[in-house]
Design a protein around this nucleic acid. Structure first.
Lengths: 103, 103
DNA sequence: TATGATGCTTCGGAAATCGAAGCGCAAGGA
DNA sequence: TCCTTGCGCTTCGATTTCCGAAGCATCATA
């Protein structure tokens, strides 16, 4: 895995999360568990092939698990999203700064 | 920008941060400001063309600024990374869980 | 029986990323 | 003055990733 040669877990994490849709998938699964197609719908109809790939990676990383015909966060995954939750508040401030400085 | 049509800032943020090297660049600039080539070196020699693109995007998003021949986080960027700091602790727990459950 | 939903897989084309090379500039030494 | 070094990029061809539409097998409902 890219970034893994550094031996620093944070680099591995930043790499994994820096793949298209990865963060979004975790975020959506935190809102509520979902099946494949529902997840796809929630993520602005992302392509099924990429969703398959990301779900494989996230499962291999033990952040997501599949059960009862649906995907959900593992405990590790939930802890991760919990850490990321303040992003929501930050992004609102960010958007407001956008408006106030927009040309 | 992808995700922007939702009107939800968090989606825009998750999209921006979910691009290759974006998170890493912010992380590195938080450790210390850096020039182009140094940044490239710190990010495992990422390709110069992508670094140019990411820096443009991050500057357009007002997370990074250029000054005195070097790149550094803006206040918004610093706030973002501050929010992300707990990722470091989480990633260590994650890595440990990896070891303890490795086959 | 057929109709729709689900979890995918396949495939061709578009876009993003990579890696190596090179350019113009500035500073420092010999 | 020439030479080297480091700098911030840019260019370009090759590879990888992503997209989007289609299709398939399965199950539930009508």
């Amino acid at each position: 895995m890219r970034g893994s040669d550094s031996g620093r877990p944070i680099m591995v994490a930043l790499d994994l999360l820096g793949r298209r849709w990865a963060l979004r998938i975790l975020w959506e699964l935190h809102q509520a568990p979902a099946g494949f197609r529902e997840l796809q719908r929630r993520c602005e109809r992302m392509s099924a092939s990429v969703l398959t790939t990301r779900l494989e990676e996230l499962q291999a990383s033990r952040l997501v698990a599949q059960e009862d015909g649906g995907y959900h966060l593992t405990e590790l995954g939930a802890e991760l999203v919990a850490v990321l939750l303040p992003l929501n508040a930050w992004s609102k401030r960010w958007a407001e700064a956008d408006i106030s400085t927009a040309k």
